[in-house]
Design a protein around this nucleic acid. Structure first.
Lengths: 197, 197
DNA sequence: TTGACTATGGACCGACCGGTCTAGCCTCGA
DNA sequence: TCGAGGCTAGACCGGTCGGTCCATAGTCAA
């Protein structure tokens, strides 16, 4: 399981031969399935068939540093995706729907075992750097929507609704094992967001 | 911490003197703060100053059985709250706002360390009975809204949006440590839900 | 060929995990 | 007065946790 490389480039530094990236990819998918505390170091090692030494060589900070790398990775990926979609001057609602559609594919592909964004990672140690990283990611995504919606007060509200309906919809859908719930909530939200008002 | 008894009755069987309820209350608040895997049995024991024997006497199934009891407890409480609000023939949007308002108070009271509903518990063991319990709770809440909205196809959509914006908003707000985000997304969602259309 | 450096492999550690088990306490009916 | 049984108390268990450490292998410049 989780043997597939992340499709994104990720520098791929010559000598490292992708070990670091494999660790990040495996860690991310495990964290998204079981949350930070639900995944052990040896789970990640098993998934990558790598020894402990490699992990602590690339991530001296251990589990938390690896988790932060994973969060940063997905944060960047989604952020890039958002930037690309918005640059096609799509309306915010359309971008939201597009993102939701990808999440649906993701959920189905993993048989609803994984949570596409960062929802589950929220169960992270209190004031840790990991929590900070998650927080930063959400802020970036939020401000992408906010900018695209004009940067007004109203835009901020709509951006909140967009992200909330997405994260919440994912959670509902995952539990019910039916992407339907995600589609429904996001579609309605997108409708509202696109209204001039 | 978490010394307060749950305000709800909860049978309170004579001889048990509330031990079971104390365990449930402590477990719930800990799980809501750190997720299922983030809480250890001894965390719960410490919070209640109870010995291990008591826990395994009341919950022979151990951690998972206790977690299920906690989920069932909050599920019932919210469900009752919803029933009460709807019976005052409020509009669904108003009920959603009321619920969100309570969540805001909750977040502030716990300094954003706890997640009011079930969000964090989603990081639970795969196909377990616990996951089932969470799933059931969400279905019940969903159908409360659905009924109140008329039971049509459109009502289902709106109910999804209501719950998604709530759960998602909580997650956003908790990370940003600002209840603002929750208010904003839920207010917009409520607006949309109240529209006839 | 050699030496310096990076990366892998995995034994090992103390702490803590969830769970079991039994000894005693306390209450209440007979 | 005296058991019986519900409940508390906590020592104890094997397993697993995150993390350390060092020996080895690979690689490249000199």
């Amino acid at each position: 399981m989780t043997r597939d490389q992340p499709e994104s480039p990720l520098t791929l530094s010559s000598s490292t031969a992708g070990t670091k990236e494999r660790l990040i990819a495996a860690a991310l998918s495990l964290f998204q399935a079981k949350g930070y505390h639900g995944v052990s170091i040896s789970d990640i090692l098993d998934a990558t068939s790598l020894p402990k030494g490699s992990l602590y060589h690339h991530f001296p900070g251990g589990k938390e540093e690896l988790a932060i790398a994973a969060v940063t990775f997905i944060a960047d990926e989604v952020d890039t995706k958002l930037a690309a979609e918005f640059s096609k001057n799509k309306r915010a609602g359309a971008v939201l729907l597009e993102l939701a559609h990808e999440c649906v594919l993701w959920l189905r592909r993993t048989d609803f075992t994984q949570t596409p964004l960062l929802g589950l990672l929220a169960a992270s140690p209190g004031e840790s750097a990991l929590t900070q990283a998650i927080c930063t990611a959400q802020k970036r995504w939020l401000s992408r929507f906010e900018m695209a919606l004009g940067g007004t007060e109203d835009a901020h509200d709509k951006a909140c609704l967009a992200l909330a309906s997405l994260e919440g919809g994912i959670s509902l859908a995952r539990m019910a094992r039916s992407s339907d719930l995600l589609i429904r909530s996001v579609t309605l939200a997108a409708l509202h967001i696109n209204q001039r008002s």
